[in-house]
Each structure stands twice: as structure tokens, then as C-alpha cells.
Amino acid sequence: MNSTGFRRRPRRPRRLAAEASALVIAAVVAFPLYWMVLSAVRPAGEIESAEARPWTLAPTLDSFRRVLGQQEFGRYFLNSVVVACAVVIASALIAFLAATAVTRFRFRFRTTLLIMFLIAQMVPVEALTIPLFFLMRDAGQLNTLGALILPHIAFSLPFAIWMLRGFVKAVPESLEEAAQLDGASRSRFLWQILFPLVLPGLVATSVFSFISTWNDFLFAKSFIISDTSRSTLPMALLVFFKPEEPDWGGVMAASTVMTIPVLVFFVLVQRRLVSGLGGAVKE
């Protein structure tokens, strides 16, 4: 990332000013996160204390204990990981093929299709839950992880296809011609040449599907009805939202627990994400 030999080197004071502001902005952006973690370790009753101190003198892990001590918490965590990974992998593969089709070929309805892909995202999800529910019931998927995986694949595909278009476009056509001259079959080109080239883009789009799947409440509570052992992490968070007596310490601790795996995922793919997304800009 640093090897670009980069653009105009700003003069020193200007760069320092830029870096200082970057750090200040980072602190501002991170402050609510800090407050979340802080609220999670505060002793009961201190979250709402008139002093609003940005620290606590008696940190406690009680809230985390309430979160982690929940029945089957590990199970929920595992389910979330399985669902998120399945969605990420499946939607990446399907989107890759679709993006290749709409970028490398011209055919009727191409533009229409691209816009159609977006349509479902424009409708409130609550409205789609009912037809989806009956679909899942008739397909016998209710109360299985499939009832979460399938809709999430569908909802992450449109965005993934739109993003991947740019990456596929960026691969020079000459490469395909050369491959053909070498006698490579179309599928060989697709999987052995094109696929690795757009892999960074796939990683980039997978971040989006990962987050939306990981944080989903609605499908998780609508399609996993009778088998709580198939529940996902957000259900462990919802326990703390009791209408009249919410447990904010528990909410914050559960959210912290939920956010950490996403951050880990980010850190792992961060380099690829940044280098990968760049491909989308090319024609």
C-alpha cells in the first residue's frame, strides 16, 4: 500500500496537519464505540449517573458474564459464523458468475436485469418477510439455518453483482484472447484466470454481505421459530431489551461481543479490501 511512490508529497506541515486531523476524526468516530465498551464494564446503575464521567473507577465484567452465561451462547455464536460464512462464500461465487455475464457479454435485457437486481432492496424487508416465510415453510426450511442463509444470499447478491462488475471490467480483454489462443477453454479461463484476478474484489464485497448477515435480527426471529438451538447471536442480544426494564449494561456487552468478530474479520481482509476495491474503478 505504501509502494505507490505516491502522488504529490504534501509539504511537511500540511501533512502533519492532515495526520493530526485524521487522528482527531478517528478519535471522534471511535468515541461512541468507546462509550459502548465503557457502558458494558460499568457497574449496574452507573450508566445513568449524572456525572457522565468518561471513565469508570470500578470496572466489572458482570455484564459480559450475563451475556456469555446465557444458555447455548456458544451455539448461537457458532450458528452465526456458519450462516455468515455460507452467505459470504455462496454469494461471492454466484455474484462472480453473474457479474461476468453482465460485463463480458451483451445481450437483451442486460440493463433491465441490472436494475431489477436492485429492486428488492428498495422494499421494506418487513413486507417481504411474509411471502418469504411461506416460501421457507413450503420448502421445509423453517427452523433450519437454510432459512437464514438463502434469503441473505438473495439480499447480498444485487450489491455484490453491481460492485463486481467494475472488477471484472478491469481485467483486460486481451487476457481472454490470449488464453483462447493458448487453447484454454472458457471455463478454464473463468476459474483459473479471471477468478483469481477478481478475488480481491470478491473479498471486498464479502465484507458487506458479512456485516448485513451477521447483524440481522428480522429473519433470525421470523424464520427460526421453534428450535432455539438454531438461533443466531442477535437473539442473545435481544434478551436484554425488555420493554419496561432494559438492561443497558447487557445490551452494550452483547453488542461489544458481536462487534469484535466483525472487526477481526475486517483486520484480516483489510489489506485486500483496500487493494481490491480499487479495481472497481476501471473500465
Binding site: I25, V29, V262
Partner: peptide, 13 residues
Amino acid sequence: ALMLAALGAWATP
């Protein structure tokens, strides 16, 4: 630093 802070904000439910 800025990237991680932003990603954290993004990932929070």
C-alpha cells in the same frame, strides 16, 4: 487508526 474506527462504527448493530 481512522480506518479501524470507521470499520468499528460500520460493524456496530
